[in-house]
Amino acid sequence: MAASKKDNAETKATKKPNPALMKPLQPSTELAAVVGSSPLPRTEVVSKVWEYIKANNLQNPENKREILADDKLRAVFGGKDKVSMFEMNKHFAQHLS
C-alpha cells in the first residue's frame, strides 16, 4: 500500500495544467464590468472576481461561502441576490466565449 500512495503522489506532482483552462476567453458585457473587457483565462477571471468580492466586502459575514451580489454581480449571477462560492463558476461559464 505504501508504494501505491507514493506513486499516486508522484502522479499528482507531475500533472500538467489543463490547456483548456488557460485559453483566454472573452467576457460578456456584464462580466466585463467586474473583470475588464480583455480576454482572460478562466483562472484569471475567478481570481479577479474574488478580488472584487473582497474589495467590496461581498462575502456574507455569517457564512463566508455565500456571495452577496451587488448590481454588477447580480447581472452575472442571473439576477440572484446571493450565490454559493461553488455555484459561481457555473454562472461564469454563461458569460465567457
Rank of each mutant, 00 (worst) to 15 (best):
N8E: 15
P39W: 09
Q94P: 03
K15V: 06
I53Q: 01
V35Q: 03
E66P: 03
N89R: 06
L96V: 07
D70S: 04
E87S: 11
A9H: 10
P27S: 01
L58N: 06
V46C: 07
V34D: 10
Q94N: 15
V34E: 09
S84L: 15
A9R: 08
G78S: 08
N63Q: 15
W50T: 05
L25T: 05
L73Q: 08
N89D: 11
V83I: 15
F86M: 12
T29C: 02
L40P: 02
M1D: 09
K82P: 00
I53F: 02
V83M: 06
P19H: 00
V45S: 01
F77K: 10
S37K: 04
A69F: 02
V49Y: 03
E66V: 14
P61M: 11
Q59M: 11
K6W: 15
V45I: 15
L58C: 05
K82C: 04
L25S: 04
K72R: 14
A75V: 10
E51W: 00
N56P: 03
K72D: 11
V76I: 09
A13L: 10
F86G: 05
Q94D: 13
D71C: 04
G36Q: 08
Q94F: 08
N63C: 08
M22A: 13
K72S: 12
K12T: 09
K23M: 12
A33P: 07
D71N: 13
S28R: 06
K82M: 08
M85N: 14
G78L: 08
K6D: 11
M88E: 10
A32Q: 10
A75C: 07
M22R: 00
K64A: 11
